[in-house]
Write a protein that binds this DNA or RNA. Structure first.
Lengths: 196, 196
DNA sequence: CCACTTTCGCGACGGCCGTAGCGAAATTCC
DNA sequence: GGAATTTCGCTACGGCCGTCGCGAAAGTGG
């Protein structure tokens, strides 16, 4: 019993993990989390929907939170990165995609759940950071590579207010707000060029 | 049954609420939350420690989360506001006090719990915002009243990165970082005057 | 004094989480 | 082929949350 998340890793001696179960669990969890909302998501329901015993889920994810992290990572994997060469424009696009996720109440609830889980359990925090935050951070940093000093602080100044509004103050986040954030952080002049 | 939090409100016709119970519950909850950490905090323990039946707690706080909010609000109430007249210096002090709270793992866990609860239940979110975030927001805005344009965005740019680092990326927050945030947001020149 | 209303403590319930133990199945090593 | 190992499904457990119903206590209004 290793509670390993990687699907095809460590083919040991005993009976192999049912790969189909891996897939079915993640799919069922994603459906329940994204579609149904928070209260629909119980390990019992996930297991039933996946056609699997509850213990089979626990063998893969030691905690409900770990499963949530895995689902988020799966959803995240599908998002492409904007890269038109125009830093401001790409940043705006990246922030828009963040907001579009956090705008959905079900996803906002999910993110909140994840924050709590990360604060509660260091392992979950590590996993969440690597899978969920890491990509965004890297994306931001990549966009800012072109000579802006102190990219890490810049990233915080762009992403921080978004999470702050979405998860803490609850204030709405519109496009104008995003532009203002970018303008405040990148002291270039003129509006953002949206392309033709 | 009104599940009212205000202690002395609405003295109706029936048996009055036991004010001592109000106090004992909050005290027990605060002790368990701040001292013991997250796993020590169960309504059962709170009730037992307060010398009260569990239903008596539920009559005051419809949810565990509401109780957490009330405790946070109580802790918050004790923090004074810096006001030396020097905007940058006062802001730094205010942000320091935020960080000093979020630095304690038990409080960080508590804040995460609160974020999740707020995202889950609109009522909790409202209460948390009014009691926990509201004061900070007001404090920031007050400090920024002196002619800085768009205080609300400025507040987000100061508080957002702090919560972002503390609750999401987990990066450490030192004094240098806070100064950099302030410097980025308030484009004044020179270091912050700490006084003699 | 008596009805009425509200709180209190108590006990019980259903639902969920995470753990543990069991026999059976699947696969590898010898 | 046989032993060892691992997974699978199942059942059960303790702990917690939030709800409900009960009789008793403590007030208010007539």
């Amino acid at each position: 019993m290793s509670t390993n998340i990687e699907p095809g890793s460590a083919r040991g001696r005993g009976r192999p993990r049912d790969g189909e179960a891996d897939r079915a669990i993640l799919e069922a969890a994603a459906e329940l989390l994204v579609g149904g909302g928070y209260d629909e998501f119980s390990l019992d329901r996930v297991a039933t929907r996946a056609g699997v015993a509850r213990t089979t889920v626990y063998r893969r994810y030691p905690t409900r939170s770990h499963l949530v992290v895995a689902v988020m990572a799966g959803l995240q994997r599908e998002a492409p990165l904007p890269d038109t060469g125009d830093v401001r424009r790409d940043l705006l696009e990246l922030m828009r995609s963040m907001v579009s996720v956090l705008d959905r109440p079900s996803m906002r609830r999910l993110a909140g759940e994840l924050v709590a889980a990360a604060a509660r359990d260091a392992g979950v925090g590590e996993a969440a950071r690597k899978l969920w935050v890491g990509r965004r951070q890297a994306a931001f940093a990549l966009l800012l590579r072109a000579g802006w000093r102190d990219p890490s602080v810049l990233v915080d100044q762009l992403a921080g207010p978004i999470y702050y509004r979405a998860l803490i103050t609850g204030d709405p986040i519109d496009d104008e707000y995003l532009r203002r954030l970018i303008a405040a952080v990148l002291p270039g002049e003129g509006p953002i060029d949206e392309g033709a």
